[in-house]
């Protein structure tokens, strides 16, 4: 599995760290929405939208579309550009 960083090009997996599923952060105080946000996961077998960071490279946070069954990387975008 290799990721193509939008700033650095295609790089080795060792340079990247998985940062969790992309979730919408709830508003307000603790409640079921916060519990779900922190603990519950869709955990998809197939297309997964997730955060990665290129921490051993440019340190950018990235939005990655990845297939969890085949390890195909479909898209990599900087987080600032919104969901891929």
């Amino acid at each position: 599995m290799r990721l193509t960083c939008p700033h650095c090009g295609e790089r080795d997996l060792r340079e990247f760290t998985f940062g969790g599923a992309t979730l919408t952060r709830p508003e307000g105080d603790w409640g079921p929405d916060w519990d779900a946000y922190i603990h519950l996961r869709e955990n998809p077998a197939g297309l997964s939208r997730e955060y990665w960071t290129h921490d051993m490279g440019c340190a950018a946070w990235l939005l990655v579309e990845r297939d969890t069954v085949t390890h195909d990387i479909r898209a990599v975008r900087p987080v600032g550009e919104g969901a891929p």
């Binding site: 998985f18 969890t68 069954v69 390890h71």
Partner: peptide, 13 residues
């Protein structure tokens, strides 16, 4: 490997 996967195989690192 520290990323979610159902591939039943990991990566070289």
């Amino acid at each position: 490997d520290f990323y979610p996967s159902y591939a039943q195989r990991g990566n070289l690192p």
